[in-house]
Design a protein around this nucleic acid. Structure first.
Lengths: 140, 140
DNA sequence: AAACATATTGATAATGATTATCATTATTGG
DNA sequence: CCAATAATGATAATCATTATCAATATGTTT
């Protein structure tokens, strides 16, 4: 929590009421992947006049500061989640029935990256999404 | 080419002039990943009155029949490419500077899939995108 | 505390991609 | 050829996101 505030101040970033609320929403939703609209709905419970533009601006900025991850799944909109400290490599399993998103462990792709490097690319980042039935949906 | 027409007829799918043109465009662009708008521009050279709605409908349908792959990259729109016969597992390297998309060999993720299966998921599909600098952009 | 510069906000318009609607135009089987 | 059905193209509607801008808040200097 404190290191987040550090990042905020380094980014010349004022911690306004709205931003604080949005940050709290993201922290309360640890492990979830929220869309901007979902963040708005949750945040309005604490700050009823909050506008969607502020939500987008804040999420965008926090993603830029590395506080959040911003990922676009195939549904066509961005989803945001609280970043852990490790680094940029993290991946998802999305259940094709219920739509829930699960985290996948890191570093699984190191050997693949190596091969790509040998082909002359400089790898910056990578994203893996696995589409699956989760154990609950499987048994329905 | 013929097996594509087989798929078309099995899908109760008439091979109209417009659809033929769109299919040709996709075949001429083998290895590329075209957006609907790009398909429209290319196709209008042969069928000038073609409408964007028909392009979307046709691409959607061909994707449904497995003739095309439909992928959403982070830019927010779908891109389509001719499917090869093998199967659904194929992956991309996208250059973060020039935006070009390169293919990545198949089957790289088999070991990862296995781990996910052990966690109780039934894997349906997966998508990997690696963001990198291609060798040309690297040397700029 | 007043005056000022600057940053932030919220409402709303604009944009871009995609989907839905619907009247018109092909196509096909009888 | 004619009726039934499918496909097309123009355009409106939708959805997520970004841009605009006037009003408000904040911080700084005096």
């Amino acid at each position: 929590m404190d290191h987040i505030k550090d990042k905020l101040s380094k980014g010349e970033y004022k911690l306004t009421r709205q931003r604080q609320v949005i940050l709290e929403v993201m922290q309360d939703a640890e492990g979830e992947h929220l869309s901007a609209e979902e963040v708005l709905q949750a945040a309005r419970k604490r700050s009823p006049h909050l506008g969607i533009a502020t939500v987008y601006r804040t999420l965008e900025r926090m993603a830029g500061l590395g506080i959040l991850y911003k990922t676009r799944f195939d549904e066509g909109k961005y989803r945001y989640e609280l970043a852990d400290d490790s680094d940029h490599h993290h991946h998802h399993i999305q259940c094709v029935r219920c739509g829930r998103i699960f985290e996948l462990e890191e570093g699984l792709l190191d050997s693949i990256e190596e091969k790509v490097m040998k082909q002359g690319f400089t790898v910056i980042n990578h994203r893996l999404t696995i589409y699956a039935l989760c154990s609950e949906c499987k048994s329905i």
